[in-house]
């Protein structure tokens, strides 16, 4: 009955076109309704850990800055600010090769990039039960307060020098990966961050 009008593509495909328009409208509505919330979730993922990494930092006062590393690549970093808007430190999102797949890390440093305030692991696929303890508070706290002047070194016993990090038992490679990621990011970004123009706006007025 319907197949007799050969070559008449419009009558053949009107349902497809109608559905495409209908679904397109539906998707546009979903996009308009939810895109703001999704973007906020994505931002929050980084922002919500900032107060736990840098004492006194206020999530809402965070400022995003683009900085060019020594390797010539642009990286978006976050400036952690306190209640008065004063600069308290920097959050550097970075990542690198772990034992299995990439590890994504947030590194918090103080305002003059002299010490590490803390680290936070956003994403990793290390071995469950061994390497994945890099996400734990216990391991992450081993980085807090370390100076950025010297390269961090992973040791298997209790640290004796201030640039030594104790490895996780049975996960030396994962531990070395994290400290390597931290070393690389600081080597790449310490100078560029210090060379950033002095903060305008909030801190100038405070």
């Amino acid at each position: 009955m319907s197949g007799t009008s050969k070559g008449n593509y419009i009558t053949q495909a009107w349902l497809v076109i109608f559905l495409a328009v209908l679904y397109g409208g539906g998707l546009a509505a979903v996009q308009i309704a939810l895109s703001g919330k999704i973007a906020e979730n994505k931002r929050n993922e980084t922002y919500s850990v900032i107060p736990s990494l840098i004492d006194g930092a206020i999530k809402e006062n965070t400022v995003e800055t683009l900085v060019t590393g020594l390797n010539g690549k642009d990286i978006r970093i976050y400036e952690a600010c306190g209640g008065s808007g004063a600069r308290l430190g920097w959050i550097i999102p970075t990542g690198g090769q772990g034992f299995a797949d990439r590890i994504e890390v947030l590194i918090a440093v103080n305002a003059d990039v002299s010490t590490i305030a803390g680290i936070y692991v956003l994403d990793q696929k290390e071995t469950p039960g061994l390497g994945d303890y890099i996400t734990g508070q216990d391991f992450r706290s081993r980085f807090a307060g370390k100076p950025t002047g010297k390269k961090l070194v992973v040791v298997k016993s209790d640290p004796t020098a201030d640039n030594e990090i104790r490895a996780l038992t049975g996960a030396t490679i994962s531990s070395e990966s994290v400290s390597g990621i931290v070393n690389d990011a600081i080597a790449n970004l310490k100078e560029p961050i210090l060379n950033l123009p002095a903060k305008s706006g909030a801190s100038a007025s405070s």
């Binding site: 497809v16 495409a20 539906g26 979903v30 939810l34 919330k37 999704i38 979730n41 994505k42 929050n44």
Partner: peptide
């Protein structure tokens, strides 16, 4: 099959967006 695929892909996109918005 074309219509099946179009329908399924649309609803999957909606489900994916809702999950990303409310259960990030």
């Amino acid at each position: 099959i074309l219509i099946f695929t179009l329908t399924i892909a649309t609803f999957v996109t909606i489900a994916d967006k809702v999950l990303a918005a409310y259960m990030y």
